[in-house]
Amino acid sequence: MSGNQLTRRTFIKTAGATGVSVYVLWSGPGTGSWFGPRMVLAANLGVLNATEGKETLAMARQLFPHDKLGDEFYWVVVESIDRDMAGSPELASRLRDGLAQLNKAAGGDFTAVTAEVQLEAMKKLEGTPFFSDMLNKTQFYFYNNKAVWSKFGYEGSSWEKGGYINRGFNDVEWTQG
């Protein structure tokens, strides 16, 4: 039964993107399926209105602030959350209600107040299901974005480039002495 799924072959040589080769041992037909989130920048939101979208963006920025990164990186989060909301009316209503609470806690308009007031407002909602959802989803969607990785020096998939055996796995030199 296993034979047709995973044939043991000797060193199948797969050409990498950079012309470097990686030796791999095993191969098979496979049907690689995609479990992770897809990061497609969409122009429109399905559930959140434009104001709510901006509020979500502002909150995402305060949850994980990276001053050197533009709003486009945080829009990915907003769009992903919007997509999750489209798939769950329960989530949609919880998050919309939460955003309303957030505005209230900020004195009316979360996007119009200073960062200090925003933080105070967020602290008031910490621990609520709305806040936990926003925290977890922002963390996941923001840091699981390949465009963000390179900003922090993470190089992502490496096997197709032959790993790091010839690309700096041991290039630290300041540890001498």
């Binding site: 098979g28 996941f140 699981n144 490496s158």
Partner: peptide, 18 residues
């Protein structure tokens, strides 16, 4: 599942799911 070589990718969350 019986994963194949193609199923293995360099992506932490995708592999976490698999």
């Amino acid at each position: 599942n019986h994963l194949t070589w193609q199923d293995i990718v360099n992506d932490e969350f995708e592999m976490y799911g698999k």
